[in-house]
Every structure is written in structure tokens, then in C-alpha cells.
Design a protein around this nucleic acid. Structure first.
Length: 424
RNA sequence: GGAGAGGUGGCAGAGUGGUAAUGCAGCAGCCUGCUAAGCUGUCAUCCUUCGGGAUGCCCGGGUUCGAAUCCCGGUCUCUCCGCCA
């Protein structure tokens, strides 16, 4: 959520930023926000004055009672009723205007970073880096869902039986490879200084609000209505919310965390060939990294995260590219996002496997995540996160890119984690 | 699931109807020479015409001239019992 003060002071910047996202009616909404803010402030001044008068009277009445002047006190009491009335009215007005303002603020996405280009969808994203070689598999290359069947390592039908489509069952070496990937990713992250955490997979409403999944992405999360909890769509939610409402010491920054969780997404509205196999699931595993940073360090930190993820993909020897998302494709809460995509040789398409973002103060403002700066003042921190990595598509890419006539080779770095070097 | 206790600033911790003590930590300044201490101010949020004003004691209502304090509802934590991996 943007800060009203920021909008007030940087209206042009905000409008220009929202334009890069093709955010409809930006001008109207921003003007409404400013208008409501003004009304809010003037209403508050009026209310404050009424309350001040009322407080003054109360004090007088109090001291009159103390000195035994009951009659005078009772006379003053009558005067308070009118103040009470207008106080009530003004309070109602204030609540009203504040709620409206809040509603509007919740609808405004983050202002993109200066480096983000305008654009409407993924076609406008900029490729900024590419590395690794695409293996030549000839025309006998199988897509991962066929490989999974051939070697009996992932069973989509079984998953469909016990849960539904999009809930695969990993078996044998497939299950072991999953576990290997999780451990490998976590080791890479902790090796880079991230502190490992294990967090709940169900979160309350406040947490959903804190990181921005609620209210607008309500339909994407599984909602356990009996207890009013949500299954997490990403570890970002519980991990970032660890610091909701916190005032951290400057010396404790940066806070760097990593955690493995399953992720649950309803993916309402998804269909077609692009959701086959592991491409899009309702439940998948992911290892996440999260950082809380001082504002002046957050972009350097984002670059550090990008470099870190690059390192992992290099070790896995998978062909990948990095995109800087355009305004229209950048998530609601992010200011700058880099997507990592692996090349799926058999499907001949790029698969997103990581997204690293800087949210600046957008989440922190909702989370009330502040730190005491060097002047002793409380200041909103910057939050960042990235996947390192999302498992299913990495697995898909490994299966497809490492397939041979004899079976699927295991990438070297994963062999110690798997305990085997071939799936056949 | 049943019973009880509790939720006060960054932290600790008073306050049971008259308008949030105190300590520690942080920040600024002053002073002092001895392993850092002392003193002063500041130290939640909003508004402000920069004089101040308002709000704030888990959340939402209510009673009252006046609520951290009393009442009702909710929520969370802790303890005990029950159930149980």
C-alpha cells in the first residue's frame, strides 16, 4: 500500500509509474485519494476541536465536583450533550472518509522502479541475461509428463484420484529427487547466509493482508472457512509476516531468511496445453528467500538475490534467461521484478521458475514493519523475496534436458543428495 | 471440547473512574577524564495556523460530564482437565 503522504508529495511520479502499468483510471483514483485525504484532514481538525472543548468541560466538571459545587457542575453537564452530538457526527464522517480512502489505497498497485519499462503483458518484458546451452535432443525428445510415466516417477492419475487434477504424486526416484532438490536449495541458501525457518502452511487473514494477497487475490487462495485460515500460495506470506507489526533495530538489518514450504494455488481460470504435467499445479514445493532491508540497500540486495539464483542455475547446468518485467506484468505489490525462466527443450518453451522482487515499502506499510533509523526515528523497511527455487518446473526441465537414450541423468550437484546418478 | 487467569510504549513494569508512573534500551545535546558514568531533552500515531490539539492501554460496542480502569461481544496468549500425533 502506498503512503498517502507519498502520493501527496509525488503525484506526478505516481501517475507516471501507474501509466507504465497501464493502470486504468489512475488519474481519477489518485485525485479521489487526494480529495478524500483533504476531507479526512479537515474533518479531523473539526473533530479534534470538538473533543478538545469536551475534554476541557469534563475537567471543569471534575474539579467542580471535587470542590462540592454540584449545581454548577450539573449546569455544565447539560452543555456537553451538544458537543457529544456533534462529536458523534464528526466521528462517523471521519470513519466514513477514512474507510473510503483505505479502500482506494488498497486498489492502487506499487509504483514501478525507474528501470521498469511500460508494457501491457509478458510480451513486453525485457530479456536482460541468458546463459547455458540448450542440449540437442533431436526429435526423440519427450516432454516431462511422458518421461514421468515412462520411468514411473510421477503419477498424475493417482493424484487426481485422491485430490484432483494438479496434485501429482511423486514416486520412488521422483520423490527422492524432489527431496534432493529441496535440500540442495536450502543448503545453497543457508550457505549464502540465509537463516532457515520452518513456518506454518496456513495463515490468518491479517497475514494475507500484510503481504498483499488479500483483499484482491482472495480467489487464488484455498480458504479453510471453518477456522478462517488460508493455505499459503507461497512461503513469502508466512515468512514475511514473521515481522508484521515489528520495530526492528537498525543493527539487525538486513534480515535474511529462507524456508521450504508447499504452496497451494487454486489457479482458477487456468486451462489448456500450458497446464499439462508439472507446468501448473494446485500444490507444489518451493524454497523461498526473503529479505528485510534498509531502503538505501534494497536494490543492491535485489541484485545480490539475482546473482545468488544465477549461481544455483549454473550449478544445475540448465539453460535459463532473466527477464525484467514490464510495468503491466509486474505484480501488484512489487516495484521491480526479475523473472528467471528455464528452457524446456522438449516443450520448446520457457518456464518461469523464480521471481525476485523488491517491494520497497509497499508491503512494509501494510505490515507495519519498521526499524529505528540512525536518527532514532521509526521508518518503514523494504521487503524483498525470491524463489530459490520453485520445484516442479525445475524438475520438468531436468527431466527434459537431461534425458538420454539410457534414462535421465542426474545433474552432478544433485547426485550426493539423490544417492543415484541415473533414473532408468 | 471444559474451567480459570491474563493482554499497558522497542522491552520490562505500575496504575482499578478524574485523563498513562518508573526502569532499561535508542536518539540529540551538555558535562566529566577512565573501562564509561552523570545531567537535560527526546523517544507511539494523526492533525496543526508550529502556539498547540487530538488519539492511543488486544479489537469492536456500551455506561458516564469523564473509561487503561466498569459492562457486553469478539480475539489471542498462558495454566489445568479432557482428547490425541
Amino acid at each position: 500500500m502506498l503512503q498517502v503522504q507519498f502520493i501527496r508529495d509525488n503525484k506526478d511520479v505516481v501517475l507516471a509509474g501507474l501509466a507504465k502499468r497501464n493502470f486504468a483510471d489512475a488519474e481519477t483514483i489518485i485525485n479521489d485519494v487526494l480529495q478524500l485525504d483533504e476531507t479526512r484532514r479537515s474533518t479531523q481538525v473539526s473533530l479534534d476541536n470538538v473533543l478538545a472543548d469536551s475534554n476541557k468541560l469534563s475537567k471543569e466538571i471534575g474539579s467542580l465536583f471535587k470542590s462540592g459545587e454540584v449545581q454548577k457542575a450539573n449546569l455544565l453537564k447539560e452543555k456537553t450533550s451538544q458537543l457529544k452530538e456533534s462529536g458523534k457526527e464528526l466521528t462517523e464522517q471521519l470513519n466514513n472518509v477514512t474507510a473510503k480512502l483505505q479502500d482506494l489505497l488498497y486498489q492502487i498497485p506499487n509504483v514501478p522502479h525507474a528501470s521498469v519499462v511500460a508494457g501491457t503483458n509478458e510480451e513486453d518484458n525485457e530479456e536482460i541475461f541468458r546463459e547455458g546451452t540448450v542440449p540437442d535432443l533431436g526429435d526423440k525428445a519427450l516432454p516431462h509428463w511422458e518421461l514421468a510415466k515412462k520411468y514411473d516417477i510421477i503419477d498424475f492419475d493417482l493424484g487426481a484420484k485422491i485430490s484432483g487434477a494438479g496434485f501429482p504424486v511423486y514416486k520412488g526416484k521422483g520423490a527422492r529427487l524432489q527431496r534432493a532438490l529441496i535440500n540442495y536449495f536450502l543448503d545453497k541458501n543457508t550457505g549464502a547466509g540465509y537463516n532457515e525457518v520452518q513456518v506454518p502452511h496456513l495463515v490468518n487473514e491479517a497475514s494475507g493482508f500484510g503481504t498483499g494477497q488479500l483483499p484482491d487475490k482472495e480467489g487464488q487462495m484455498y480458504h479453510v472457512t471453518a477456522d478462517d485460515l488460508y493455505l499459503i500460495p507461497t512461503a513469502e506470506v508466512p515468512i514475511t509476516n514473521l515481522y508484521r507489526g515489528s520495530l526492528v533495530k537498525e543493527a539487525d538489518l538486513p534480515i535474511t531468511l529462507t524456508g521450504y514450504t508447499p504452496c497451494f494455488r487454486r489457479e482458477a481460470g487456468s486451462y489448456g496445453a500450458h497446464v499439462r504435467g508439472l507446468n501448473r499445479l494446485h500444490q507444489f514445493d518451493k524454497v523461498e528467500i526473503v529479505r528485510v532491508e534498509k531502503p538505501e540497500n534494497s536494490y543492491e540486495a535485489l541484485n545480490g538475490m539475482v546473482e545468488h539464483i544465477k549461481g544455483i542455475l549454473r550449478e544445475l547446468k540448465l539453460p535459463y534467461r532473466i527477464l525484467r518485467l514490464c510495468g503491466g506484468d509486474t505484480g501488484f505489490t512489487a516495484a521491480l521484478t526479475f523473472d528467471f525462466e528455464l528452457y524446456s527443450t522438449a516443450q520448446e518453451r520457457w518456464l518461469e521458475i523464480s521471481s525476485a522482487s523488491n517491494f520497497e515499502t509497499f508491503q512494509a506499510n501494510r505490515l507495519k514493519l519498521r526499524y529505528k533509523n540512525s536518527e532514532g526515528k521509526n521508518q518503514l523497511a523494504h521487503t524483498l523475496n525470491g524463489s530459490s527455487l520453485a520445484l516442479p518446473r525445475v524438475l520438468a526441465a531436468i527431466l527434459e534436458n537431461y534425458q538420454t537414450a539410457d534414462g535421465i541423468k542426474i545433474p552432478e550437484v544433485l547426485v550426493p543428495y539423490c544417492g543415484f546418478d541415473m533414473i532408468n
